[in-house]
Structures are given as C-alpha cells and as structure tokens.
Design a protein around this nucleic acid. Structure first.
Lengths: 341, 341
DNA sequence: TTGTAGGCGTTATCAC
DNA sequence: GTGATAACGCCTACAA
C-alpha cells in the first residue's frame, strides 16, 4: 500500500521564528483576525511568502472548528451536468479559500448514507451541496439534520423550505417549450418523461400537460412515455411513439440526450426531421447543439445554479433560508417546424 | 464565512474504553496490523461497528505517515473523459479505502503548480494521477520529483519511463482507422488534428501519415488541418476542407467532438454523409454514437486506463516502473462507405 | 500480544 | 496587540 513520502514541512513555528513573533500571531495573520499590528502583519506575510508556507489542513481541522472543506454530492445521467456543477462549485470555493471535495456517487447504490457520514466524520466537512436526486432522499435529509450539517440544494423537489436552494421553474420551462411546439401548429405532441427518481421529471411532465390543456388539446396517455434521461431510452420510446397508428408530429423529451435518441430513431425509421417530426429537448447540453438538425431546447443555467448554491452555502453563518430562482432560456433551433400534413 | 457545526465525536478513546483495551490496540485493529488476538480484534470491531466509529482523517494525517488520499489532476476538452477518469479512479480508490480528491484544473491557467503544491502541503496526498496535458508539463514533473511525490500518468507523451503509466498506442490506432478508410476505397483522406498541447495529437497525426504512406498515397499538406478537439473547430476545419477545389472524400478527425463538428458542417453544406463523405473520429465518447449517422471511431478504454493507473499508484511501495498498454477497438459504424465517385 | 509516552501542526483560551 | 499553554485524535517508537 502506498505511503506518502517524507516531506520537510515548513510550519507555523518556522514562520514565527523567522518573523520574530509568536506562533499565535502568525496564526492570527493567517486567519485574518483582528488585533494584529499592520506592520507585524506585513512582516509575517512576507515571511509566509518567502518560505512558501502553506498551513496543514489536517492540523487546522484537528485544532479548529472549521475545516475549509465542503463536499459536492452529485450523480446525474449527464456528464455535462456533473462537469458544470463541479466546475461551478469549485470556482466559487476557490475564491473563498475553501476546498471542494467532489463526491460522485451512484444513485442506485445504498452506500450514499455511509459516504456522507464518512465525509462528516472522517473529513469533517463544513457543508454540503446536494444535487438531485439526493436532494430528496429522506434518509439523507434526516442524517444531515441529525448531524447538524449545513447544506444547500440544487433543484430540490421536496421540503423546499428546508434549506437554501438554487433552481429553475421546470414546470414553466416545459410549458414554454410545449407552447412553442403548439405555436408551430402541432396538435399531436408526445412527451418522453425523465427518470421518475428526479423531481424535475414530474415537474416537466406537469408543464407539458398544462400547456396542452390551456390550448384545449386533450392529453392523450398513449403519447406520454416514461424514459430515464438516457439516449437509449429516448430512442426506444420514440420508436414506440412513431409506430403508433397515429404517430405524433412533435416530441418533447425531458432531456437532450433523450431528444437526441428520438432524433436517431427518426433517422433510422426514415422519418424526416424537422419536416415530418419536430423534436424538442431540455437542458442545453452539448448534445442538443451537436446532433443534426440541432435541437430546440431549454437552456438550463447549470453553472449559475452551481454558483448560487455555493454562495448560499459559504455566506456568513446563520443567514436565513433563501430560494434563488434562476432564469432559463428557450433556445429555438432548427429542429422545430410546422408539421407538413 | 461558514463554520462547521459542533459535533459530538466518537474517538478511539471511546472505543477503547468500551472494548476494555488500550487505544493502541484499537489503532492496531483499525489498521489491520499484526499481533492482535483474534478475540480482541473481534471485540474491538464489534464496538467500532456499534459506536459507528470513523477515524478522523485529519488526526491520521497529522500523526501518521500516510493520508489515505490521492489526487486526480484532470483537465480535458471532453466531459466524458473527465467523468470516466473520475469514476474509474474513484472506484479503485474506494476498494482500497483511499479517498480520491478530484482536482479539475484549467490547462490555460498558470495556477496548476500552485494547486499541486497546495495538495502536497495542505492536504498531504499520498500520490497523484496525472492526465494529459499535465503529464508533460516540465515544471509539474520537476515539482513532483523535487517533492518526492509518487505519481502515475495516463497517456504520457514525454519521459515515458519516468513513472508508471497506462496508455493506448495512439499512433497505431490512428493508422488503423486511416487504413480502414483506405480499405473503403478512399484516396483523398483529410485529417483534422487535435490540440497540439496534447501529445496524443501528434501521435494520431503520425499514424495518419504512416498509413497513407504505406499505401503509397501522398500526404497532402492542404488536407491536414489543426483543430483543438472541440466541436466548433471540427466544424470550422471541415468547412475549409470541403471548400477546397478538390475536396476530400473522407475526413479523419482526432476526436469525436471534432468529427461531429465535421458532420454538422457537411450537413450544413449539403454534402451527403456517408455517400459523398466518410467521417471518422476518435475516442468513442457518447457523441460518436449519438450523431447521425453514427461515427466510425476508436474506442479508447478510458475506464480501464483509470483502473490501471490507480492500481499502479496504490500498489505496494517501491514497485518498479511499469508501462501498461491497453487495447483500443476500432468501432466501424455507419459513417464510412466507398466514395461514390 | 498488549500498553505507555510523546508528538504531529494548528487553533482556543486566557493571561499579559 | 501579543504570547504561553493546553488541547484536537491519532500514530510512532519503545517498553512490558
């Protein structure tokens, strides 16, 4: 088993000796505490710089009340989502001198609770950012409440006032994109919903239904199919839809990957897109821009959600719970057009 | 600024009291050391279980020689690559009771050295997994050597015997896929190379050249264009290629994203794929399966490379440097066909 | 096979 | 403003 090398560490002690002050004073400077003379502060900082001193995170955790580490608990069908979340949270953490521990997990696995407990007990994180579907796991919420760990959530589906959160209005966004299809003249609009484990799936389906109903279009159960956010499910469900006696002229899939799958299915079956079939997605991942023709979709500001969530987590303790709603954008691209029949 | 909550910690002391043994004995059990009576071990383990005790990572780092933490330094144009690397390294770490610190970085940024030093000094990692292009940064290699930090590399381009590594033969893979195009009857085969910062780019271009030459096809400079691995560069370079007086009948792009970009450009220009143009990519990311028609590509076993690299890093100290070559696969999908002229 | 003493590098507390 | 001293929870070294 791997062992660390023997390092010659520079410690606070070294700095204090060089600067001719006590250890505690160096500590004060490092932590930006008050009651340090300006001149002393400058001298210490100079030595810190010169010796390239970096405080030991372990010692800080052990002795202090803060660990300067937070964790991001993230599992999502889309690598783009994961990537954006990680990048966003990390950027904000870095600005604050906090380290982000990215904790990918498998939402199928039962070990999540264990991993979070390990984060709390072994690593001693100061806080947590949760993304769906873990945002809505009762045992996770229980655990965090019981342990008194501060956390924020991205797009929570339940107990929305339990913590601060950042989110978009999925229902309204889904209604918007459905209305967009209706405005193009479509009446038989199908929907491929997302993984039911994600609250966003139900919200998007609700938006779809609502938009149809407000236009006086009957919601037809056979036109609603359950997917799981992945490309393959989009392809499979779209094939089923296109095989209907009276196939839809438009499909709204709850994720871009599924929309891309639907597009592939259409290509395979010789259904011309967008002439004979319009396809819309959701999320604005790279895929919706890359497939051909590019898909109309909802641009979900993942990066902004990550920023907002991190800011809410890192701000001064005791702040009130705040729900920060971010704006999505409907990006109309080539894949939608008036049905030709 | 966020402060951690007040936790009631369970410590070794608690365990030792409950189990009626000394602290040191508990420590022995936790670290699977020899010289502990079977019965004692069982008793201690039972108490550990019952109290839900998890050793403080900070205390272990501070007192011991190992931190049970390694870092993954990863920046790549493809979120799929990042995702696979993280998942792979993490899985293997978990099996070994080691924590992975995912350190995304910006390869344009000059702060990488600083971040690695911080990882060494603040976090005290036991080792490092490096992915391109950081594998080939002289100052990074210098730093790690100077600090005596153990590390392995994925697909290193330089100093290949400096550390253990996991990789595929990029040159041979590129030659294979070029030969595949040649076998289909193509003679005017263009190449869009990757970001020159990645050693793989030059390797793939070399493979392309080699395959042409061995078939007696002249390498035409105007058919080689430099991209940067991203979709947009693939689209732009393909457009330039298709605007040539004598355009290519096939394009081999050094990444799937660029191949998808080339495909989009062809669609936009009304060039029929694969009838009038064959397109091949590299990497087998999701995109190559999702675009239409799906692209012929090289399946690079990223997950396996992550496994191999982590295994090499975590194995017993002092092991010899080992280069582990993994096998790629040429996945022939719809996008290649005999040119129609 | 088990236990004791000391220290890792920092922060908290309290005195100056 | 600044400094001494005692933790923090664990591991190393050595003793029994």
């Amino acid at each position: 088993m791997l062992r660390g090398g023997r390092q010659v560490r520079v410690t606070i002690k070294d700095v204090s000796r060089e600067a001719g002050v006590s250890i505690k004073t160096v500590s004060r400077v490092l932590n930006n505490e008050k009651y340090v003379g300006a001149e002393t502060r400058a001298r210490v900082n100079a030595v810190v710089e010169r010796l390239n001193f970096r405080p030991s995170s372990a010692a800080r955790v052990l002795a202090g009340r803060r660990s300067f580490q937070i964790a991001l608990i993230c599992d999502n069908p889309s690598p783009y989502y994961v990537y954006e979340m990680q990048s966003g949270v990390r950027d904000r953490c870095e600005e604050q001198g906090v380290r982000m521990i990215a904790q990918p997990y498998d939402r199928q696995s039962s070990k999540l609770i264990d991993e979070i407990e390990s984060l709390i007990d072994s690593i001693q994180i100061d806080g947590l950012v949760l993304t769906p579907p873990a945002t809505d796991y009762p045992d996770v919420l229980d655990l965090l409440a019981r342990r008194g760990v501060r956390f924020v959530r991205v797009s929570p589906g339940t107990d929305v006032m339990l913590t601060s959160s950042a989110f978009i209005d999925n229902e309204r966004a889904a209604a918007d994109i459905t209305r967009h299809l209706i405005a193009l003249g479509h009446r038989r609009i199908a929907h491929i919903s997302g993984d039911p484990a994600f609250a966003a799936s139900a919200q998007r389906t609700a938006g779809y239904r609502g938009a149809l109903q407000e236009s006086g279009i009957a919601v037809e159960p056979s036109l609603i199919r359950t997917g799981n956010f992945y490309f393959t499910s989009g392809a499979a469900e779209a094939e089923a839809l296109l095989a209907l006696p009276e196939p839809p002229t438009a499909i709204f899939a709850a994720s871009d990957d599924m929309a891309a799958g639907a597009l592939a299915a259409a290509h395979r079956l010789g259904v011309r897109v967008p002439d004979a079939l319009s396809i819309a997605g959701f999320d604005d991942t790279a895929i919706s821009r890359v497939v051909w023709p590019p898909l109309t979709t909802i641009r979900q500001p993942m990066r902004q959600m990550a920023y907002a969530a991190t800011d809410l987590l890192l701000r001064a303790a005791g702040a009130a719970i705040e729900r920060r709603e971010l704006h999505y954008e409907l990006v109309a691209r080539g894949s939608t057009a008036r049905p030709s029949r």
